[in-house]
Write a protein that binds this DNA or RNA. Structure first.
Lengths: 267, 267
DNA sequence: CGAATATTTGAGGCCTATCAAAGTGAGTGG
DNA sequence: CCACTCACTTTGATAGGCCTCAAATATTCG
């Protein structure tokens, strides 16, 4: 327990951006290859649903867990630490993401997962998940697809970390999030943004101090506004320009023959 | 065609490090979940095997391809470019890797793949691959596992790009490669190393000039020697120390119940 | 051998890190 | 209700790692 109080704006009363769902919410696994019956099978395999405080480790490095953890509402992140103490976020987890997908096949993971906001998470026992994967091709394909999308996102992060300026890194991160959170609109888009500047730094390979200075500049340029944990984008197009952002890589609507999957048991 | 001739030391006469195989070589898919019958099914689904020159694009961004390309011998890499022209390698492909695994499920990819050495590649049509995945759980699990291992490697790359010094980045890259190539030994390990300094830079988020200076320093410290496209590691332990390297993340022998998979049709 | 490609060297400068400290805001307890 | 604390944000000054530009040397290959 870090003892840090939850951030009010991420409680369930702000449902417009990530509506809390009872169990497996509708957009939870955004995969188009899930037949309705498969989706129900998934839902029934879940053993528990739990709330966690912000800034609390859900999974610690080298820990063995027997559950896949699916984020239903709230944010979390994966991170790893270098031997000199430096920290790097390797994934941002928003509703619908699986915190430890690779625990489906591997005994240990080389990262930790920490909550960012008040969050509710659902547990899918590994054994059940393996059984589901064996029995339902759509579920198998969904998990595989999730791993591949994670890869695509990681590739773009690598491009940011390796070759983009602090400005472009921040801009790109924000653009990515608008897509992943399903935020639409061209002007004055606003949404809750729980990341601290230090966490942004650990995500983008910068120091919190430099993040601060860069954000101030971007504010001055009218690219973003960020106060009270709310991020607003006055002009999406110019932010994308600053980021060199093209949403294609997220493969949102590009699943191969999504419609060709057997959807026999549509409820 | 870049017109650059193949590097002699990567021809088949140097089989001690990546023995060229006829079709799908033994270590091709190193997955322990492949039953022998499944492995044979994979092999039979392959349509062609082809040689390519070094420095040639196998896959171009936004190109649609209908084949998964499996590396049998030689090296290649995935890369993406930023809008300002900067380039970032996002994966290094060695024998056994699949160049475009995500084309199994997605129509387009957001990267290009370029050969690094003389290379031979095998093609697995997407349709066949999807059929195999549907029919053979072990193949499905193998592909999923490959995606997850790619993720684990990408996570470590992010840590390098974001938080490690040029020294540690180079050291870590080399340590990773020794494991992935199956190179063993503690002292005076040597193996062919086709990466140019500029490519190392594009991989590690550095300029070729800085890579050069750093490598010279590391040479001076006795950490590595690199000449004639051959890399030798005088002392593996101290290189790992400089890198903060722990091989665990590659999940080499950690597959869940590898033995529990149905191996009924063992030839 | 000559053209093209890599590696190496040098000088100068910018981006970002580091160190230090003040300002801000929310929650706590008296 | 107000001091108090803790965490986060902001500001300043300094420095260092890495980049940029430029050119010489070495290597590869036709």
């Amino acid at each position: 327990m870090t003892g840090i109080a939850p951030i009010p704006s991420y409680r369930s009363d702000h449902s417009e951006h990530w509506p809390s769902r009872h169990l497996l919410g509708s957009s939870l696994l955004r995969s188009p290859c899930l037949a309705k019956g498969e989706w129900r099978a998934l839902e029934q395999a879940v053993t528990w649903s739990k709330r966690f405080d912000p800034h609390k480790d859900l999974i610690s490095e080298a820990e063995r867990a027997d559950n896949l953890l699916i984020v239903v509402s709230g944010w979390a992140y994966r991170y790893t630490c270098a031997s000199d103490g430096g920290r790097q976020l390797t994934a941002l987890l928003v509703p619908g993401d699986i915190a430890n997908l690779d625990m489906l096949l591997f005994e240990q993971v080389a990262y930790s997962v920490r909550t960012l906001t008040d969050i509710t998470v659902v547990a899918l026992p590994r054994k059940q998940a393996l059984a589901l994967v064996e029995e339902h091709p759509g579920i198998a394909r969904t998990f595989t697809g999730l791993a591949m999308i994670e890869n695509a996102i990681a590739s773009k992060w690598m491009l940011s970390l390796g070759r983009r300026s602090a400005h472009a890194r921040i801009a790109h991160l924000i653009c990515e999030l608008t897509i992943r959170l399903g935020i639409v609109g061209e002007a004055d888009v606003a949404f809750p943004f729980p990341l601290r500047q230090e966490q942004i730094g650990d995500l983008l390979g910068l120091t919190n101090i430099h993040v601060n200075r860069t954000i101030q500049q971007m504010r001055g340029q009218g690219l973003i506004r960020l106060c009270d944990r709310t991020l607003t984008i006055p002009d999406v197009a110019s932010l994308r320009g600053a980021a060199g952002f093209d949403p294609g890589y997220l493969n949102l609507h590009r699943h191969i023959d999504a419609a060709a999957r057997p959807t026999a048991d549509v409820a």
